[in-house]
Amino acid sequence: MSETPTPTIPAERPSPPPATQGKPKESKPASLWTDAWRDLRRRPIFIISAIIITVLVVMALWPSLFTSIDPMDARTCELATARQGPSASHPFGRDNLGCDLYARSIYGAKNSLLIGITTSLATALIGGLLGLIAGYFGGWTDTISSRFTEIFFAIPSILGALLISATFRGGALSSITLVIIALTVLGWPMAFRIMRAAVITAKSQDFVVAAKALGASSSRIMFRHLLPNALAPVIVIATINLGVFIAAEAALSFLGVGVTSPDISWGLMISDARNRFLDAPLPLFFPAVFLCVTVLAFIMLGDAVRDALDPKLR
C-alpha cells in the first residue's frame, strides 16, 4: 500500500508594513547651537547661575514683588533711626540716612543690571562689527583697525573710565548714561580682537571659498556665512564681561564718579556706607553681597557657555 503524501502548507508571507501617512519624519541635523544647548542643560553650574540671574532680572523689573517700600520716597527715610539694626519690618536694618536697607538693595538691582547688560551689548556690537570688517577685508583695513585698537588696550580701564566720567560729569547726560558710555569706550577692543581672530580663521574654510566662487557679495559672505561661525566666542566674552562691567560700575560709584543720587545702585550704596563701616557694617555688607553674587553668577554663566560652545572642552 502506497503512503498518501502529506500536503505541505505554504509558509505565510510576512504582511507588508502598513503604509505611513505622509512623508517619514526626518530628524533635524545637529548644529553647534543645538549641541551647546543640550550640553548646557546638563551642567549644574549653568542651572544655578541661570536661576540666580532670573531672580535678579525679576527683581530689577518688578521690585514691588519683593518689597512694599519705595526707597525713592523720602518719607520712608527717618534720620532718627539711622544705622538701626535688623527688625521684623526692616530685615536688613536702616542705612546712614535712616532708609530701609532691604528696599534699597532690591531697587539697586535695576541700575546695576541695566549698566552691565547695556554695556555688554554695546561692546559686543561695536567690537564685533569692527572685528568682522577688519578680519574679512584684511590689508590696510585690518592694519589701521588693529593699531587703533591697541591705543585703547594701553589705557587702564578703570582709570580711563574715571577720567571720562569726571570730565563730562554734570552735563546733559545722566550719571547712568555717562557710566555706560565710559565703559563702552574702553570695553569694545576685547570683542574686536576676538571677532577678528575668529573671522580670519573662518574665512579660509571651504564654504567661504565656495560662496566667493558662486559670486556672493562681501556683505552676504560676512553676515550669512562668517558671522554665524564666528559669533560663539564673542557671546562667551560678552557674558563674562557683563559681570565685569557691573563690578566696574560699582568701582566708579565707590570713587564718586559713577551713579549719583537720587538714583540707586549697589556701588553707590557701598560708597555711602564706607565712612561708617566700623560703626555700622550692615549698610555696606548687604549691597556688597548682592554685588558679589551677581558678578559671580554671570561669570559662572560665561564659563558654562564657553565650555558648551567649545567642542575641545567637552
Rank of each mutant, 00 (worst) to 15 (best):
W37M: 12
S120M: 07
R94K: 02
P10M: 05
E249T: 13
I299D: 02
K312F: 11
P5C: 10
Q205M: 08
I235Q: 13
T34Y: 07
A122P: 00
D35E: 09
A210T: 06
I194T: 08
P44E: 10
A297V: 06
L242T: 14
S217E: 11
F153E: 03
L268E: 05
R276D: 04
P283R: 01
A247V: 13
P233Y: 01
L97M: 03
P228C: 09
L252N: 05
N241P: 09
S165Y: 02
G267T: 06
A74P: 00
R314E: 05
M59R: 06
V234L: 02
E249L: 14
Q205H: 12
A166F: 02
F92Q: 03
C292V: 15
F92S: 14
A103D: 07
A154D: 06
N96Y: 00
S15G: 00
S165Q: 09
A191K: 07
T201Q: 09
G138P: 08
G243E: 02
A198P: 01
M1I: 04
P189I: 15
A30V: 02
T8G: 13
M222N: 05
W33G: 03
F168K: 09
I115K: 08
K110A: 14
P7C: 11
A213T: 10
V259T: 14
A80I: 01
S15R: 11
T141V: 08
R276W: 03
L61Y: 01
V305K: 13
P24S: 08
A82K: 00
P24M: 07
R314K: 10
I45Y: 08
T6G: 09
G93S: 05
I9D: 06
T20S: 10
F168R: 05
G131P: 04
I144S: 02
A161S: 14
A211W: 14
R41G: 08
Y102W: 05
V293I: 07
K28N: 10
R83N: 01
S165M: 08
S175K: 01
R314I: 13
F254V: 07
P156Y: 02
P233W: 14
A202K: 15
R169C: 12
D206V: 13
V257C: 02
I240L: 15
T81V: 02
I240A: 03
L252F: 11
S89G: 05
